[in-house]
Design a protein around this nucleic acid. Sequence first.
DNA 1: TGTATACATGAACAAATGATCATACATTTG
DNA 2: CAAATGTATGATCATTTGTTCATGTATACA
Lengths: 105, 105
Amino acid sequence: MAPTTAPVEMNLSIEKMEKVAFILKTTAHPTRIAIVQLLAAQESLSVNDISERLNIEQSLASHHLSGMKLKGILSSSRDGKNVFYSLKMREVVDVIQCIAACTFL
Amino acid sequence: MAPTTAPVEMNLSIEKMEKVAFILKTTAHPTRIAIVQLLAAQESLSVNDISERLNIEQSLASHHLSGMKLKGILSSSRDGKNVFYSLKMREVVDVIQCIAACTFL
DNA sequence: TGTATACATGAACAAATGATCATACATTTG
DNA sequence: CAAATGTATGATCATTTGTTCATGTATACA
């Protein structure tokens, strides 16, 4: 039987480390963290919703959103004039929670 | 009584989001992820150990290491000619594990 | 004291990022 | 179709990052 608490042992491949870095990098920005927060609570929001809630320009919101979509963190679907974004890679929520939980921050 | 599984609801402050972003940014690099990996398994390693294991120049390793130390992720202590670095913020291990566990990566 | 070994540091430069602006595209409605 | 609304995109620019190189500092040891 494997012990329930194995010694830390992960040995990621170089490729995997690059992918992980890629995702972390995509998440590592206050505005993008805020976006993830909103979408963790809302299921889906339009670009306007987000830019208003975060008090940023529409264009900037769109840039962040499409970037995050391109990198696989978000997905989007159009409904009339609006484009609604939602979380695709929900794991990033846990990642943020994990760091945010550090009491010393 | 608070429910044990609350709906996703974290509402981090702007300051907290900036701090989280700061930590993620500091971690978001293949070499630095590799360093965390090594230190997750070794407790402490010298600059030379690390630069050899990762096949990078001493100078580059030192830059990454002192940066991570400055940002609170690592700590260091000198023993003779060597400086040994070790993980201070072990939470970053979980963060990396979390993303690395995504099957689609 | 001088030399070797281990690290640190700063300059310099290329590349990536983030923000803003202007403008283009898409959809609805009059 | 024209105007209004919502979103995307590309150019530009300032800032930050990552790397390399040269050199400086610290410790050990002959």
